Amino acid sequence: MKLRTLGVAVLGTVGLAALSACKNEEAAPTPARGAVQPPAQAKAAPKPEAAPVAEPAPQALTGGGTVRGTVSFKGTPPPQAAIAPSMDSACEGMASTDQAIRVKAGKLENVLVRVRGLLPSAQGAKPAVIDQHQCTYLPRVQGVAAGQPILIKNSDGTLHNARALAGTKSIFNVAQPPNGKAVQRALPAESEVVRLKCDIHPWMTAWVVVNPNPYFATSGADGSFSIEHLPAGTYTLEAWHETLGTRTAEITVKEGETASASFEFSSADAKSTASGGVK
């Protein structure tokens, strides 16, 4: 009888304790209106990613004067080496002869005319584009200012590689898949004349002349060239051709005016490529 009474008493005590705990939980104090709450622990905001550094925009040349002229060829152009037809269908439409000396009506194409020695303040410049189209580098001859990169494209549905050489020294050699992504490269300022070739299609050739200033132009099919926004002054102009050598002329430019300059190459300067062309 005493044991039963003790059990009932214990159960009663446990029940009261549980009931008291429930009431305490239900009766958790509500914060008074206006009471200051401890700040909730906020998650740390992600650090913003650093914005990419934008390259300086190319500065357009303004003011100054203009030099216009023509490049002529005297005599009969030498015979150009034949290029064996390619079995690569992507090469369809390519020239059938070496294109080193292109003369039409006595006018010479692909002559790089540049101002020697002028060093203007540094400025940004867009890459000079060289495209590979119908297994031919386009353009064949162009200039870049020192520090200006080149962007090499492959518009053909075939594999090319672009090997850059300064004399016999290799600067770079990049493979370019069919219609692949363009490749940008810098050229050493000291290289001055850089030749591009494709080892897969060995007739493919292009020339890039690195100049210490942005004042240059390449003669067109009619032999004409134009250099604009050249600061007033007296300069030495140089006309460079890949096989015929160079010519120079002194020129004086006045602000807002146009000066004329002409250059002439001849068959005596020519090195015939009939024995195989440029290697």
Score class of each variant (00 low, 15 high):
R4S: 13
H241E: 07
A27M: 15
P120R: 11
G277V: 00
P29F: 12
A249L: 09
Q176V: 08
G245H: 09
G147V: 05
R102W: 06
I101S: 02
L112N: 09
G34P: 04
Q41D: 11
A32C: 02
D88V: 15
K74P: 00
V278W: 11
A9T: 13
A125Y: 05
K169F: 04
T97R: 09
L16E: 01
A32V: 14
A42M: 12
M87Y: 02
V253M: 07
N110W: 07
P127L: 04
A239Y: 13
D269H: 13
H160R: 04
P188K: 12
L6A: 13
H229I: 02
A18S: 09
I251F: 07
V36E: 09
P78F: 06
R195K: 10
E55G: 12
G63E: 06
S96E: 14
M204F: 06
K126I: 06
P214F: 03
P214Y: 04
A166S: 15
A50R: 02
H133P: 00
S226F: 01
K197V: 11
G147M: 07
L159F: 12
Y137S: 10
V113R: 05
Q80M: 14
P178K: 02
M204K: 03
T258V: 12
G147H: 05
H133K: 14
A100Q: 11
T236S: 13
A28S: 10
E55I: 01
A17F: 09
G65W: 08
G220W: 01
V71E: 01
I227Y: 06
I152M: 14
A249K: 13
L118R: 03
K271N: 13
L112V: 13
P178N: 04
P46V: 06
S260Y: 03
G277T: 03
T243I: 14
A40Y: 03
V71I: 08
A81E: 00
K2Y: 03
S89F: 11
D131W: 00
P85C: 03
S86F: 07
L112M: 14
A51N: 01
G106T: 07
G256K: 10
A28W: 10
G64Q: 05
Q142S: 12
I101T: 15
P29G: 07
L230E: 06
G233C: 08
Q37P: 01
G276I: 04
P85G: 10
A175F: 05
V144M: 06
E250D: 14
S262Q: 13
Q99M: 15
S224D: 12
K74D: 11
A175D: 15
K169D: 15
K271F: 10
L159A: 14
K74Q: 15
A122L: 12
V208W: 04
E92G: 07
E228A: 15
P120T: 09
T136P: 02
S121L: 13
A164S: 07
S275A: 14
A175R: 03
L16V: 15
A35G: 06
Q99F: 02
L11T: 11
S191I: 06
K197G: 14
A50K: 03
G180S: 14
T70K: 15
